[in-house]
């Protein structure tokens, strides 16, 4: 079925990715991540001095500031800040830098839908760029269910999101399933026999949807995130190859 976004032919197709790392001179790490017409720039500063009130004795304090495309940060941005911070807290090996601050600023540059997913991916690349120790890499995509056709659309544009019955943001890491995983018992088997697999780090689903629709989105996003992980890997690899060459010259 045709999408509103004419540049794509399939409902499970992602928009072209783009990334650029180390854009900002004064930050310890920075990265820009684009999903088609959506672009987010992220900077990382740290380990830096922490306010006494926020100081944690055994680990680093994470601070995330989300900045909208226009205007001053509002309530919606606070939600994004909390989501990113609470998802990253178990990922960052913050015990290595106790009593310090790790400040992450996420600035939306262009908004054509899926800003939160783009922000997650940009933050991940910026953290890698800053050399912050992490225990795994996350990747994120968004999908939606169309109000009229009940079709699951991966990585919707803003125009498509206006037709959404529900939207789903998913984040998955690149780790193998945890050691205590019970293998097949962890999966959910759908009525049509499809298996839903993959361990989710973060998910935010809003709107009205059924359980079957939720797990269909889960599966579609899990597959989508594998592509994002592949891309993040290539991006980091290329960056290090370039840096290595510069060192040798």
């Amino acid at each position: 079925m045709a999408r509103l976004d004419k540049s794509r032919t399939s409902s499970h197709q992602l928009r072209p990715f783009f990334t650029s790392q180390n854009l900002l001179n004064r930050a310890d790490g920075s990265a820009q991540f684009d999903f088609g017409g959506t672009s987010v720039l992220c900077s990382v500063v740290g380990p830096a001095e922490v306010k006494i009130r926020d100081e944690k004795l055994d680990k680093a304090t994470l601070e995330v500031l989300a900045r909208p495309l226009v205007g001053v940060p509002g309530v919606k941005d606070k939600t994004i800040e909390q989501n990113i911070r609470e998802t990253l807290e178990p990922l960052v090996l913050s015990g290595l830098h106790p009593r310090t601050l790790l400040q992450i600023v996420v600035q939306t540059m262009q908004d054509d839908g899926c800003v939160q997913s783009t922000a997650f991916n940009a933050t991940m690349l910026a953290l890698i760029d800053a050399g912050v120790p992490l225990n795994s890499i996350l990747g994120s995509v968004t999908c939606m269910i169309d109000r009229k056709t009940n079709q699951v659309l991966l990585d919707p544009t803003r125009e498509e999101l206006a037709q959404a019955k529900s939207t789903h943001v998913f984040v998955f890491d690149n780790k193998a399933p945890p050691a205590q995983s019970k293998g097949d018992e962890d999966d959910v088997v759908m009525e049509d026999g499809d298996r839903v697999e993959g361990h989710v780090l973060f998910c935010e689903s809003t709107g009205v949807f059924t359980e079957a629709e939720y797990f269909e989105c889960y599966q579609v996003c899990y597959k989508g995130v594998q592509t994002v992980h592949g891309f993040l890997r290539t991006a980091v690899q290329k960056k290090f190859e370039k840096e290595h060459q510069q060192l040798q010259d």
Partner: peptide, 30 residues
């Protein structure tokens, strides 16, 4: 971490929110 599930009277989902605390299997969410 926490998982919040929102349901209406027909048991349709109105929200699923999982945040923090490492990864969770689909079976746990179910």
């Amino acid at each position: 971490g926490r998982i919040t599930v929102t349901l209406d009277e027909k048991n349709q989902l109105c929200g699923v929110h999982k945040v923090g605390s490492g990864s969770c299997s689909p079976a746990l969410i179910k």
